[in-house]
Amino acid sequence: MTGHEYAFILLALIGTVAALRVVTARNVVHAALYLVVTLASVGGAYLLLAAEFVAWVQILIYVGAIVILFLFGLMLTKAPIGREALDNQRRGAAIVVALAILAGLIFLIQDAFSWDGSKIEPRTGGAAAVGESIFSRYVLPFEAVSFLLLGALIGAIVLSRRDDLT
């Protein structure tokens, strides 16, 4: 166990507990704020994995933009408080399905990767290397994502426009 690993396990625990609070919180705004904790700890995990650029993009876009969008969404809709208002009746079945998926994934991971065989060496993940990779090998997917964002922008405007204002 190295210091890196302890730091990662700590971040992972914080992120997992906050994620559990996201799906169990009784107040929607608290759920959004716990989501911030989860996303930030995932960003910290990226930093520990030496993926610097992805980490800052995670902080900028997820914590900075997406959570703000969620908070606006909560503000514009009625936000009831309480477990009955936020959860449906199938909570037991949902727990069973989630635990089954978790058990299956853990079994597969333990089966596929030996505990000491595969280690993550800190490699380059800075903006220069990632940018060069995007604009040399992955130009076409990059353009596709640009068009997707444009389409999403236009779609969101069309969907949320009131018809009587045309």
């Binding site: 994620a19 995990a45 520990l48 399905v97 989630a98 994934l105 990767f113």
Partner: peptide, 24 residues
């Protein structure tokens, strides 16, 4: 150095929590 399964377990935990949230 971080062992790969630790990272994958974190990811698996987040994924199943997300599945629970979507269903519940």
């Amino acid at each position: 150095m971080i062992r790969l399964p630790i990272v994958l377990f974190f990811s698996a935990a987040l994924f199943s929590i997300g599945v629970y949230g979507v269903l519940a």
